[in-house]
Every structure is written in structure tokens, then in C-alpha cells.
Amino acid sequence: MLEILITWIAAFFTLCIFSFLYKDNPIYKFAEHVFVGVSFGYGFVLQYYNVFLPNVWNRMPWEDGGSLFTLIPLILGLLMLTRIFPDIGWISRWPLAVMIGSYAGLQIIGNAQGDLIEQVRANFLPLWTDTFSETIGNWFLVFGTITTLVFFFFSKEHKGVIGHTARVGIWVLMISFGASFGYTVMARVSLLIGRLQFLLEDCLHLM
């Protein structure tokens, strides 16, 4: 019984969301507000069970296996909440500073390691290989990447040689975007088929 109820309510909300394709309407608005409320409620409960209970509550100094160190994030977290009171709200900048500093540092090394060096190394390609398609491809990769980098020059005006190279860079970018676009289309269509299957098969048993 419960299963059937879930299926029908799910079908109702599925149609509510699809109705947006016609235009913004009261039932879409209703579904949208329910979705926002339910999803954040779910996210909050998840944080409570996955972070707050295991990492804070169960690791308080008086708990078995707990430690005094747990008090530090607890205090920082509580300092964040001072924002609710305008007079002392500026204290919340301390935990913000801890987080922004740490994240900025981690992103510096993450970008240097993961993207910068990795991508430069990936472009050390031979310009002469056994197969014709690979040779042409490697030329495209090496010079395509460099022209794209020229497009990102900010301190020189895009005129003359730099201007022409940057223009080629834009073309490379557009070809690349076109490829990603075309590649994604089928994936998105299959998502739609999945939803239609739910309505026709699970709900109406038509298939």
C-alpha cells in the first residue's frame, strides 16, 4: 500500500515539475517550494548524523575515545553563530578567516598539482608518430593549447600577431565546446527517457 502511495505521489510531483515547460504555474510553484523545503531538511539531517554526531558529540572529551581537540572546531562553529547577533557578529570573521585561509592554501596546491603541472606534462607529445591521425591530433593538441593560452593574455592588446593567434584560440575553444555539447546531448535525452519510463511503466503499467 505504502509503495503504491509513494509511486503516485512521486508521479504527481514529476508532472508538477514537467508543467514548468508550459509556463510558471501554481502547481509548479507548489512543487518547487516543497522540493526546496524537503531537500534542505534532508541535507540538514544528513549533516546531523554524518558530521555532528560522530565528529562532535561522540568525540567530546568525556566520551570514550574523545579528545580535547574536538572543542576547537566546536568553538569555531559556535563563533560562526555569533552572526545571528548583530553586535558581536564581527567575531564570526575568525572562523571565516580560518576556513578561507585553509581553502585558499589547499586550492593553490591542488591547482598547481592537479591541473597546471599535469596538463603541461600531458602536452609533451611527439609531433611525429606512426599513425597519421595521431600525428595530426598531436599537432592540434600542442598548438591548440598554446593559441588558447594566448587568448587568455590580459596585459597585451589583441592586435597583430597576438590578435590573430588569440582568434585561432577562440576557434579552438569553440570546436572544443561544440564537441562537449554534442557529447552531452544523448546523456540528457536518456535522463528524460528514464523519467518517461517511470511514468508509463511504474505508474501506469503501460509498458
Binding site: 603541461v120 606534462r121 602536452n123 609533451f124 607529445l125 611527439p126 609531433l127 611525429w128 600542442v142 598554446i146
Partner: peptide, 9 residues
């Protein structure tokens, strides 16, 4: 990058 390409070639 160009240096790396020449060396790899």
C-alpha cells in the same frame, strides 16, 4: 611545452 614537444619528438 614546446621544448618538451621537441624533446619527445
Amino acid at each position: 611545452m614546446l621544448l618538451g614537444v621537441v624533446l619527445e619528438t
